[in-house]
Structure formats: structure tokens, C-alpha cells
């Protein structure tokens, strides 16, 4: 398996197993902060454990991790801190776990977000993926449970998926650690700016709504010229999210 990325990655340096050091819970002096997001039941915690060498419990049950777990690994002398966010279907509801996930991606300013999805249920998982891509421009899609997808006779053209989404896509089987080295390489490449993401933006919004979103997004942009996700902020404001209005007042997300 190889990483499929925006910048034809066939020529990329391959992963360097020797360079990876699992650091467990030692999260001091990190160079990069990585958020780990995903639907419930996609093996997100298994990916987390595979990356950090920790042994978080991974239940086959939606909504296991409610509080976020932290861990770290080192790769080519750079330290990465990993935040395992609660598994959620969406980032737009008001439940506690969604707020934890949403707030971290928006206000925690992670270097990049790794989104773990179940390869057999891609369409459902894309709901969350497309929302995250509106918030944060640096993301990697971890196409997990490839073994189950294969058993279910589902094949995914992950190169064109990467093209469609505008972010690197890495197929993995986290249980047996397949694809994890490639995932680490992709994380490192993106964190060090070797790959540039061009994330997909939600397109199919009805015209009259889209116009409203654009107007509001422009108004936010005017007040905060440096904000990259003004469109997401506009979504939230239109949904009546009072937290976001509060954050707009203080500029907490800059």
C-alpha cells in the first residue's frame, strides 16, 4: 500500500520505520498537535493506539471515548501530540461529545486532523469528513477497516477519492497495523508542508441558502481577514450557535 496524495506521491520518501518512536502519554515539548476524529465504531481508538503505543480501550460500541485521550509519538526527530476526540456522526448537534470534538478542531488549532473512516461505510462517514474539511484545511483521511471492506467486496479508488476530497488518503487496517507507517509519513509530510491540501467545500447547498451563507461569510471575513473557515462560522451562526457568536466577539478562534 502506498499513500495517495495530491502531489503525486509515487516519488515520495517511503516511511522510515526506524524513525518512529511511540511515546505513550509523554506529551511534553511537542512540535505538532494532531487531532484524531471519526465516526463511532470506525476503529479510531485502534488507530490512536497503533500510533502512540498506548492501550486505550476500544469498545465495539458507539460513543466509547467521551473524554479525549492524549498520546504522542516521535518521527524523524519531531514530536507529535495526538488527541483522540470523541467519536461522532456529525459536528452540528448539541450533544456533549460533539461539542468536545467541534471545539477542539476549531479552537484547539491542531496542526492537522486525521479523520478515521470505515471503508465499508464511506458515504455515511463522509458526512463528518466534509464538515471537518469546512473547518480545517489540513486533514488526512485514514481509510480504516480495509479488511472488512474487502470481505464485503467493496473496492475504493483511493487516488480519485484523494483528488475529490483534496486531502491525502491512506488505507489502513489498524488492528494489524497495516498502513500505519504510511499514515505516519503522510502526517509528517503534511505537517512539514510537503503536501498542500485543497479541501473539498460543500457544493450542493440550495441557491438561496448559499447566497445567505456567502453574505454572512463575507461579513465575517471583513471583520477577521485572517480567518480561513469563515464559511463554517457562517454555517454555525446561521444555525444559531451562541458559542460561536461569543467566540466571534472575543476572537478566540484566531
Amino acid at each position: 500500500m502506498k499513500t495517495a496524495t495530491k502531489s503525486a506521491c509515487d516519488t515520495c520518501v517511503h516511511y522510515d520505520v526506524e524513525g518512529v518512536k511511540r511515546l505513550g502519554v509523554d506529551t511534553t515539548n511537542v512540535d505538532f498537535v494532531i487531532a484524531l476524529a471519526g465516526n463511532p465504531n470506525t476503529g479510531k481508538s485502534t488507530v490512536f493506539n497503533a500510533l502512540t503505543g498506548l492501550r486505550q480501550h476500544t469498545g465495539n460500541w458507539p460513543g466509547k471515548t467521551v473524554t479525549r485521550a492524549e498520546g504522542a509519538f516521535e518521527y524523524q526527530h519531531q514530536k507529535y501530540k495526538l488527541i483522540d476526540l470523541p467519536g461522532t456522526y456529525s459536528l452540528m448537534s448539541r450533544s456533549e461529545d460533539e461539542e468536545v470534538a467541534r471545539n477542539f478542531i476549531l479552537f484547539g488549532k491542531p496542526t492537522l486532523t486525521v479523520i478515521v473512516v470505515d471503508a465499508s461505510r464511506l458515504e455515511r462517514n463522509l458526512n463528518l469528513v466534509l464538515q471537518i474539511l469546512e473547518i480545517s484545511s489540513n486533514a488526512i483521511l485514514c481509510l480504516n477497516l480495509m479488511d472488512e471492506a474487502k470481505k464485503n467486496k467493496i473496492t475504493i479508488d483511493y487516488r480519485s477519492l484523494s483528488r475529490e476530497l483534496g486531502i491525502p488518503v491512506v488505507p489502513t487496517i489498524a488492528r494489524s497495523k497495516e498502513g500505519i507507517p504510511e499514515l505516519i509519513t503522510a502526517i509528517s509530510d503534511l505537517a512539514n508542508g510537503k503536501i498542500i491540501c485543497k479541501p473539498h467545500k460543500i457544493k450542493s447547498i440550495p441557491k438561496h441558502v448559499e447566497e445567505a451563507v456567502q453574505k454572512l461569510s463575507a461579513a465575517i471575513k471583513k471583520e477577521y481577514p485572517n480567518v480561513s473557515n469563515s464559511r463554517w462560522l457562517a454555517f454555525r451562526v446561521l444555525e444559531g450557535d451562541t458559542h460561536i457568536l461569543e467566540a466571534l466577539k472575543t476572537g478566540a478562534f484566531i
Binding site: 456529525s90 452540528m92 464511506l122 458515504e123 455515511r124 463522509l126 458526512n127 466534509l130 464538515q131 472488512e148 470481505k151 464485503n152 467486496k153 467493496i154 473496492t155 475504493i156 479508488d157 483511493y158 480519485s160 477519492l161 475529490e164 476530497l165 473539498h200 460543500i202 457544493k203 450542493s204 447547498i205 440550495p206 441558502v209 454555517f235 444555525e239
Partner: peptide
């Protein structure tokens, strides 16, 4: 509207990238 738009995008992307063999799998 927003959720429907997201799912509409999602199913377009899946159409382009996923091939499902309709035989009974696991």
C-alpha cells in the same frame, strides 16, 4: 438544507470512487 447538501456531495463522491460488488459479502 445543509445536511442534505453534505449527503448529496457525499453520494456524488462515493459514486465516483467506490465500486460495490453486489454479491453477498461477509
Amino acid at each position: 438544507n445543509l445536511t442534505e447538501a453534505i449527503y448529496a456531495d457525499a453520494s456524488k463522491i462515493v459514486e465516483k470512487t467506490v465500486v460495490k460488488d453486489n454479491k453477498k459479502g461477509a
